[in-house]
């Protein structure tokens, strides 16, 4: 297990080193990602200048939602960006060599790229989370802190799992792009707002089918007591594990369909 993780970081590190060759690009990517987060946030901040709350959610609790979504995005960019290249790897037959090496194929594919925009997303997302926690009235105790950390990890796992599963559908689709996963990624941005504002169909989509609500809404709801669905937040670690296991299963099933392009 430890060896698996060490090797994963090493694979990531090699790509990171290579991409840092272009320093100007690094800063532009980080800036672009940060600006995208900020743009969404400027909107919501401007709204809160005019209204005190959205469905009972105050400015800083919504900031927490934004922060969780942005941070999870950054986690994917920085550590699992390879998932967005899966369609490409499949289409060009580049999975061949990964399949004959003694290391899980999914991990080799996930570590095959590093998204430098991740840093921008982690920083802005992290800043929003910290600011949100500082400015929200939370009754901290050691137990709360432990649970909060567990929920946070579960939330990140849920996001990574959902997006990996969606990217792995490329084995059933034709073509060299992850357009389906891209569309789902946009659905994920809905989790930046309180779930209550959506019609019931979308609530079902975000809560059950593509459980993005567990990336932000439910864990934040448990921590802040906002929204009255806190108990669901406690399921976050379970949902996280479920999403990752599901993704691994979809990936493995997909791999048996791999046809290896070319001759």
């Amino acid at each position: 297990m430890l060896r698996t993780i060490r090797l994963y970081l090493r694979l990531l590190g090699t790509h990171l080193r290579a991409s840092l060759e272009y320093e100007a690009d690094f800063w532009l990517m980080a800036l672009g990602a940060a600006m995208t987060q900020v743009a969404g946030f400027v909107f919501i901040a401007a709204v809160f200048l005019r209204v005190p709350d959205i469905n009972g959610w105050t400015f800083w609790t919504v900031a927490l939602l934004f922060g969780m979504v942005g941070f999870s995005e950054g986690v994917i960019n920085l550590f699992f960006e390879g998932m967005w290249w899966l369609a490409d790897l499949k289409h060009n037959g580049e999975l061949d060599y990964l399949l004959v090496r003694p290391y899980p194929v999914a991990l080799q594919a996930l570590s095959s790229q590093v998204g430098l925009n991740g840093l921008g997303n982690l920083l802005t997302g992290g800043a929003l989370i910290v600011a949100g926690l500082v400015n929200t009235d939370i009754d901290w105790s050691p137990a709360t802190a432990v649970v909060a950390v567990l929920l946070f990890l579960g939330a990140m796992a849920a996001r990574v799992g959902i997006m990996l599963a969606c990217n792995a559908t490329t084995f059933w689709l034709e073509g060299p792009t992850s357009m389906f996963a891209f569309a789902v990624h946009q659905v994920g941005d809905l989790a930046r707002y309180p779930l209550a504002i959506y019609p019931v169909v979308l609530k079902g989509l975000l809560g059950v089918v593509l459980p993005f609500a567990f990336v932000s809404f439910f864990p934040v709801s448990w921590l802040t007591g906002e929204g009255g669905t806190g108990w669901l937040g406690l399921l976050t670690p379970l949902v996280g594990v479920y999403c990752v296991v599901l993704a691994a299963w979809v990936f493995r099933r997909g791999l048996t369909r791999y046809e290896s392009a070319g001759n």
Partner: peptide, 8 residues
């Protein structure tokens, strides 16, 4: 890379 410019 174009991504950074485009996002900004």
């Amino acid at each position: 890379h174009y991504n950074g410019i485009r996002w900004t």
